[in-house]
């Protein structure tokens, strides 16, 4: 288990290097630069600024400087938010995004798995069809449509909840963004857990459980739940990536000071270091969470516990 963990950590290094390499050159391919303002700067000041941030050097030299910094854990200064380093901005924005993302994930798991298992238990009845129709709707509607709709209904229509803003994380400010983030996840998880549970319920050992005289609810929770969760868990990796990209849009719409908003602002302003910092940070985050997902697998299914390379086919 421990060797497996460290092997995976080592394996992550080339992945992260590629993320840095590709995104570094991609952002520099975009037209314009961080110091193109509406009013033109004096050429000397422009030259000074460029020299200060090594922007006058060839791109591969810039990459060298940047890479040396990042290896030492330094994401560099932000080009736009003066007097802030990128690390400071991440530390400021990430807790907000994390809180939203985690709440949405938990909500989606609870409702999605429950709805999926319920639909599977009632397979091919009207209730099953209803749950599946709703989830198809949830998958089809993009979050940039859901968010304004929710604002229209709950903020403007019945004025129960604020239309946006963070308000230091007050609960009523969080409800709409969390729902917006969670909806497509709920829908996906419901579909995955439904089909997984249908398969599990047909297993011979479920019949054995019935023959032991155990009641249905006990069988579903004790025998069917864990194997049903396996495909859901493996979906969590992509789901986290989806949450992060989703939060970029959702934070922008609701005006939430999370990392996603810094990311969009950074991209628009050609704030090279900020964009790079967020990309690398998210990259590491996704790799780490995927590793956790894989470790969870072993707990759910003793047959795929990771003892290193197996000699059994």
């Amino acid at each position: 288990m421990v060797t497996y963990f460290f092997r995976r950590l080592l394996g992550a290094i080339p992945t992260i290097f590629l993320i840095i390499l590709i995104s570094f050159f991609l952002i520099r391919l975009a037209p314009g630069g961080p110091f193109d303002f509406d009013r033109t700067l004096a050429p000397e000041i422009q030259a000074n600024l460029n020299a200060q941030y090594h922007l006058d050097k060839p791109v591969y030299v810039q990459f060298g400087y940047y890479f040396l910094d990042i290896v030492q854990g330094d994401f560099g200064p932000s080009f736009q938010y003066k007097n802030y380093t990128v690390t400071e901005l991440i530390v400021q924005g990430f807790p907000v995004s994390l809180q939203l993302g985690l709440s949405a994930m938990l909500l989606a798991l609870l409702i999605g798995v429950a709805a999926g298992m319920f639909a599977a238990y009632k397979q091919n009845t009207r209730l099953d069809h209803l749950v599946m129709t709703l989830s198809m709707t949830g998958i089809s509607i993009p979050n940039f449509v859901v968010a304004p709709l929710l604002i229209l209904i709950f903020a403007i229509g019945v004025s129960l909840l604020p239309a946006g803003g963070w308000n230091n994380g007050a609960i009523q400010n969080q409800i709409l963004p969390i729902i917006t983030l969670a909806l497509p996840l709920i829908a996906y998880i419901a579909r995955i857990s439904r089909s997984s549970m249908i398969e599990v319920l047909r297993m011979p050992y479920i019949r054995t459980a019935y023959s032991k005289g155990l009641p249905s609810f006990y069988i579903v929770t004790r025998h069917a739940l864990k194997p049903t969760l396996l495909p859901v868990i493996s979906y969590l990796g992509p789901a986290i990536a989806g949450l992060i990209t989703g939060s970029v849009v959702v934070e922008q719409i609701y005006g939430i000071p999370g990392l996603g908003r810094y990311f969009i602002q950074g991209a628009l302003n050609r704030d090279y270091t900020l964009v790079m910092g967020v990309v690398v940070f998210y990259g590491i985050l996704i790799i780490a969470l995927n590793l956790i997902v894989d470790l969870l697998y072993g707990w759910l299914d003793p047959q795929i516990r990771l003892h290193g390379r197996s000699n059994v086919r």
């Binding site: 011979p204 023959s211 194997p227």
Partner: peptide
């Protein structure tokens, strides 16, 4: 049951498998 392996929950130890009816009863 006929298929003896498939009839046993792969996520449970022998102890859990054999004693489960008692847990409930």
């Amino acid at each position: 049951f006929q298929d003896s392996l498939a009839a046993l929950n792969p996520r449970m130890t022998v102890e859990q498998l054999i004693l489960e009816p008692l847990d409930y009863q």
